[in-house]
Amino acid sequence: MIIAVASGKGGTGKTTVAVNLARVIGSPVRLLDCDVEEPNAHLFLSGEASERETISVPVPAVDESLCDACGECGRFCAYHAIVSLATKPLVFPELCHGCGGCALVCPRGAIREVDRRIGVIEIRNADGIVLVQGLLDVGVAMAPPLVRAVKAKLVPGEHTIIDAPPGTACPVVAAVRGADFVILVTEPTPFGLNDLALAADMTASLGVPFGVVVNRVGVGDGRVHAFCRERGIPVLLDIPDDRRIAEAYSRGKLVVDALPEYRGHFERLLERTREAVRAS
């Protein structure tokens, strides 16, 4: 079963839910930290990285001696990563999505693809949890290829928890696509509600079943719960606004270890998630 943990708004508790769920789900479990711009699941787990892999995307390199400036490459590229205005093409590697289309449409075979490094993947075994973490290089703006590379480390048949990036843009879509179920974490505030509505629409349009975890219940108001009732979205778990959870988090402790009375909360979340997957 592949469970993705996502949220429209950042800072709602995605990683808290993902790591604690990974702890209660039992072995073998693989936690894929796809929040590649700011991976932080490792802060809550022990163990050193045992494997490290460099991830690259293929970008065009133009042999100007073969180019006749026909402009086909520039017309093909939807991302303006290669531009040809009756002159030799200009390449903007940082905008290239690595589709290879420019090389295919070039009638003169003047374009070949070269690797451009975008980040690394690290794998560590943390007390029975295999953590796969993507780390985007500083200055790189193209997260989806790295997110897909992290997901390629998925082992079919193993429990898999995906810690998605925040928001509803391309990196999140790349992280959530293909999951059996998505847990959307939110908080009962106007910001939390606004971004939950966006995330719910995104997840629904991907056709992945989903439910909601409301974190810090006790702050804000009841509109997130009302929204879920109206839309028929199951609320899988309420996590109370308990200062001790924040303290455990700040020390890099798992809630289920530091505060055993919450272990049942995450076990119930897992059970309700399994029921929802079976029902879908």
């Binding site: 520039g74 991302y79 303006h80 990563a81 531009v83 205005l85 903007f92 905008l95 703006a141």
Partner: peptide
Amino acid sequence: AAQGAGIQAAQTVA
């Protein structure tokens, strides 16, 4: 344009 607006605009005026 999500990205590359300047590149797009430069092509338009050129």
